[in-house]
Design a protein around this nucleic acid. Sequence first.
DNA 1: GACTCGTTCTTGAAAGTTGAACTACATAGG
DNA 2: CCTATGTAGTTCAACTTTCAAGAACGAGTC
Lengths: 162, 162
Amino acid sequence: MTEPRWLTDEEQRTWRAYLHATTLLEDHLDRQLQRDAGMPHVYYGLLVQLSQAPRRRLRMTELAKSAKITRSRLSHAIARLEKSDWVVRENCPSDKRGQFARLTDEGMEVLRRTAPGHVAAVRQAMFDRLSAEQMTQLGEIMRVMAEGLEPSGPDADLPWLR
Amino acid sequence: MTEPRWLTDEEQRTWRAYLHATTLLEDHLDRQLQRDAGMPHVYYGLLVQLSQAPRRRLRMTELAKSAKITRSRLSHAIARLEKSDWVVRENCPSDKRGQFARLTDEGMEVLRRTAPGHVAAVRQAMFDRLSAEQMTQLGEIMRVMAEGLEPSGPDADLPWLR
DNA sequence: GACTCGTTCTTGAAAGTTGAACTACATAGG
DNA sequence: CCTATGTAGTTCAACTTTCAAGAACGAGTC
């Protein structure tokens, strides 16, 4: 095994700043939403996805994919959200294995009530502090990073071809 | 209640790119470390912190602070790491309430063995894909964001003065 | 039909996390 | 010394996530 390429000093500083900022922000949003909406950030994200889908519903697998969580995790999450009456399951007529998760009116109402506070938190943490230039740069950087990590990324399905 | 300031289109795109990239990366590192080192990213971070501390040990509270997790979570985490013999607890002579977490030789060895792979993963996900300029920008952006979220941030201790 | 294989989603147990309550010690003021 | 108050760390119960099955259906093949 050959000597690994370690990070330069500046790379290390950047990496630590990244870890620091992202964990602080995730914590902040989790607490904010837990307090104001009674659910963690991930669950809130599920409701948002549903609210934007046609007929406010999505197949479980699609929802899992767009929220980047496993189907198992989603099953539990939807079960929990069903208990709060924010989501209901519906059978899929065309595929008897399939399930839709549909946002209820109560769920929609929770979103309406809590979205402003959430947006404010995001804005305060990010956009109020970054220049317009920095926002653009951040967007570009994040897109580049995501590209390299995409499950459907470069040869992700064909590693044996490399 | 007044109409909230929603995000502009570009802000939304940036925010989504951010969420997308950060969750993908965190997932990626978690899997990589779980596979190669047998522990999640947070736990790995604890070992790294310890490895860099004098005498490879830290007080629980300090470790919790530098890893940005609660003391409760740290208690459980250290208990788990103790079972793998990567960390041991030691009493603090000067403060009988205190505990040190100390990295064992086995723990150090795990780090030595797995650090190269981890660095490679970070590099591949981030630094191999960003230009030198972008890396600098990212560092600056993350520092700005962290500043605003710092527990010891602007008036965090004196909110009643605002 | 019967077989195989893949997909969709769920389940249950184990592991991890959280917030509050709790123990034990430290520190300051009378 | 004594009491009050604060700090270090753990523990408990409730909740969330992961992991390893597994049940049920779809689709292709013979």
